[in-house]
Design a protein around this nucleic acid. Structure first.
Lengths: 227, 227
DNA sequence: AGCGATTAGTGTACTTGATACACTATAGCA
DNA sequence: TGCTATAGTGTATCAAGTACACTAATCGCT
């Protein structure tokens, strides 16, 4: 590995991004993991990620990884935290700018990259043994998402383009881990004025058809309090 | 500068921390800036900061810089964001893990470091021309603090060990930029049960003496809503 | 000693938002 | 046609936020 000197300080760092890609499947929050093909931690599950290239910002690297591993570009993406424990990677000093993304399960196209033997979703509360400090990174991301949905509507990016009010409610219930009252939920949600009803309904299930909705705008809003 | 290769990716990065050190003086939120002694941006004001050493985490580097520049160790410190635009530093690829700190003005011991010609506080809404992307970093930090005080009590770390209720109120008013009702403010503040009254009062001013308070605990709490 | 200036300290009524709660409606399938 | 599953809807209560004005204590000055 190379070495650099600047103002007398020795610098010998690599910079990576690690991606915590969340989606909701069967009313459960899941994370995308890849099984590592090479050492260190060969055969162990890890977050998708990779090195930041010479001419990239960390965010661009994150978007590239998201496209490579999950097959999509449009979703909520946010820088999470930079993990820089000196010994977090046995190969040397590797600093990772962790990001998290929220994507609709319907748009996920999971692909195992070149350096991965496998890739699949795991429920956040039932994770396998993880490489590096990726357990810490996921725990931090889960906490951040849990806080974020308290005061923003970012979690809506987990939804497909058309959805029912019950779909949204199921997402909140799965992340919060508790049931909420249907009438109160709808009252609050509709009072925000951010949804528009579509003329279509979801049929084909043996039950009353549900009205479909879409977002008036894709912008995210900060709310003083959500629920 | 050196170069490193890992998995075929060329890596040639330096890692720094930049510190946004906030304090409140005369009911105004201020930031500590240093005047650069050397190129690039010699003579221009900049955030204090420096390189992350080989055996340090970014947080440890931030604590070290805080001690070197502001003369204190105990205060609120949080990682803000990692800035990694490829051309943000004309010397080469320098990635900065920005942190922000909240410190009581009474404990600030401003020292111009070796590489600084001067160091002083500036009101956040009256900043000089700044080096690098430090204007962006400060703007982001101000936004973060503004949001943070909505749902946590971290801003209390701007206060000295003993303070009056009016002191706290002045800090909130200075950050929010608006007056709040004294009775409502006190009602809410005391109902949190996080303060303990001291037996002392603040006298010597030509006015009614004010009761002094201290924190029962130095822990920070998340509140659903603060004011 | 008294007065003026300055900030400290205190309670209630109203408004707004959150919560608790149960029944009817519709489609698919047997 | 009736069984099952989920959609859809309103009201009453409770908790919290907001609006609002006067008296109290000390210091310094005359």
């Amino acid at each position: 590995m190379g070495t650099k000197r600047m103002n007398g300080k020795r610098q010998d760092f690599s910079l990576t991004v690690d991606m915590v890609i969340f989606t909701v499947v069967d009313d459960t929050l899941n994370v995308l993991l890849v099984k590592r093909k090479y050492e260190p931690f060969a055969g162990i599950w890890a977050l998708p990620g990779g090195f930041v290239e010479e001419d990239e910002t960390p965010r661009e690297a994150a978007e590239r990884e998201l496209l490579e591993e999950a097959g999509l570009s449009a979703s909520y993406l946010e820088q999470l935290y930079t993990f820089g424990e000196p010994r977090r990677d046995p190969r040397g000093r590797v600093v990772s700018v962790a990001h998290f993304a929220l994507v609709p399960a319907s748009q996920l196209k999971i692909r195992a990259g070149d350096d991965a033997a496998d890739a699949r979703l795991f429920p956040v509360h039932n994770l396998p043994k993880l490489a590096f400090d990726h357990k810490d990174i996921i725990a931090y991301a889960v906490t951040r998402v849990g806080n974020k949905i308290q005061y923003t509507n970012v979690v809506w990016s987990l939804l497909p383009p058309a959805f029912t009010l019950s779909d949204i409610q199921a997402i909140y219930e799965s992340i919060w881990g508790k049931k909420v009252d249907k009438r109160n939920f709808r009252k609050k949600l509709l009072s925000l004025g951010l949804l528009k009803p579509l003329s279509r309904e979801r049929t084909g299930l043996r039950q009353r058809p549900a009205k479909l909705y879409a977002f008036k705008t894709k912008q995210f809003v900060e709310l003083r309090r959500f629920f």
